[in-house]
Simulated scan of single mutants.
Amino acid sequence: MTLLAETSTSPALSHVPGHGVLSRQGELVLLCDAAPERESQIATLLDALSSVAADRGDGRDLGRRLAGLLAAARGDEFPALCAFGPAGDGIAVLLHGAAEATAVGPDGETRLDGRQAVIFVDRTLPGPVTSLRAMVGESSGALAPDRWSRLDSGVVRAQALVYGPDTVGPPAQQESVAPAPAEPSAPSGQPMLEECSMPAPPVAEPTVVEARAGDGGSPIEDLGVLGTYCRNGHFNDPRVRYCTGCGVSMVHLTHALRPGRRPALGVLTLDDGMTFPLEEDYVLGRHPYEDELVAAGRSRPLEIDDSTGLVSGVHTRVILDGWDVKVMDAGSTYGTYLRSDADDQWRRLPPHMAVPISPGTWVGLGGRCLRYDSCRNP
């Protein structure tokens, strides 16, 4: 089942006949996958859309209403969906499950994928947004809207939709934004997530780390580790096959371990594109400056702005242990989640347990996610 949506400055809304559900109430639009066993959940979604529209709410109000339903749900109770509506001069978009959206605005294209979050992706895009395309499910090919059909209000069966000028062609297949296995992001500590099955990413066995001040990671001022030098003098992880500085082979060198200053182990990339070099430990959350390790100068704060309200003040720790990168949930209310390139599901971390992660791993907290990447090649 594939569902597509496209929005533009024109209010015209055409649809591609199919087995999904498409509803429009004013300028609020909901597109969701449909199956007989999800009828009650679909009815709940449609009621939420109608209620927000009756209250003259905008896209942000719709997003908040749907986010509450999704966060309180258990397992995969709700179908994949994409909902959007105006928010000031921009547009607010919420995606859940196998849903993708591409918006064209003043900064070019912005691509979102509901699979980047554990529960949902909720973003307000600055305007003017000239077009927005969305798809729920998998498409078997190009889907052309029926240009002679138009939905001004109500509910219809649809496999896809185009919200914009009649001249707009069918939405193109989109790549997932980010990254990753089946991208990643928004966690939740609701009972739903406690019970869902989340295979662990292919990483080493977890190492228990006490979460107390002074014992949560390497001090920022002390980055010395044991490693090996290539013939050009670059300091490396002793497990790599090629120098990360110049690319020469490390295979035939005598691997005598010598102390040195550890280079950055890679980068953390947030779902909004911001990057942070992994040169020291990080504390992630709404108020990371309140953490004792940050106050002691042993970790760097990374403030996470999240409209879902699911991110704790001190939520997650990223710990550099020798040449390894580890992630630990700091006892957050809604949990920290991991997803690797080899997985299509999220795994919730036990609190206060540091787990090594490999490049390509996604970390989900609240409605946000970030990805760990590295040029190292052990």
Rank of each mutant, 00 (worst) to 15 (best):
7 T>I: 10
7 T>C: 12
14 S>G: 11
20 G>D: 00
20 G>N: 00
31 L>F: 02
33 D>W: 13
34 A>N: 12
42 I>S: 00
43 A>T: 15
57 G>R: 00
60 R>N: 11
63 G>D: 09
76 D>W: 09
80 A>H: 00
90 G>E: 03
91 I>H: 04
95 L>M: 02
96 H>E: 09
96 H>K: 11
104 V>Q: 14
106 P>M: 09
109 E>K: 10
109 E>T: 09
111 R>F: 03
113 D>G: 02
113 D>S: 07
113 D>M: 00
120 F>G: 03
120 F>E: 06
122 D>K: 04
127 G>C: 10
130 T>V: 15
132 L>A: 04
142 A>G: 11
143 L>Q: 12
145 P>N: 06
146 D>R: 13
151 L>M: 03
166 D>G: 14
166 D>F: 12
167 T>K: 07
171 P>F: 07
180 A>H: 12
182 A>L: 13
182 A>E: 13
189 G>K: 08
200 A>I: 04
207 T>Q: 14
209 V>M: 14
214 G>N: 07
217 G>M: 08
226 L>E: 14
227 G>M: 01
231 R>K: 12
234 H>P: 04
248 V>P: 04
254 T>V: 15
257 L>Y: 02
262 R>G: 06
269 T>S: 09
270 L>G: 09
270 L>W: 09
274 M>V: 14
277 P>Y: 09
282 Y>Q: 02
283 V>C: 05
283 V>H: 01
284 L>V: 00
287 H>D: 12
289 Y>V: 10
291 D>G: 01
291 D>T: 02
297 G>Y: 07
299 S>H: 11
304 I>Y: 00
309 G>D: 07
315 H>W: 02
321 D>V: 03
324 D>S: 15
334 Y>F: 14
337 Y>N: 05
338 L>S: 03
344 D>S: 12
356 P>G: 04
362 W>Q: 14
367 G>L: 05
371 R>M: 05
372 Y>T: 01
375 C>M: 13
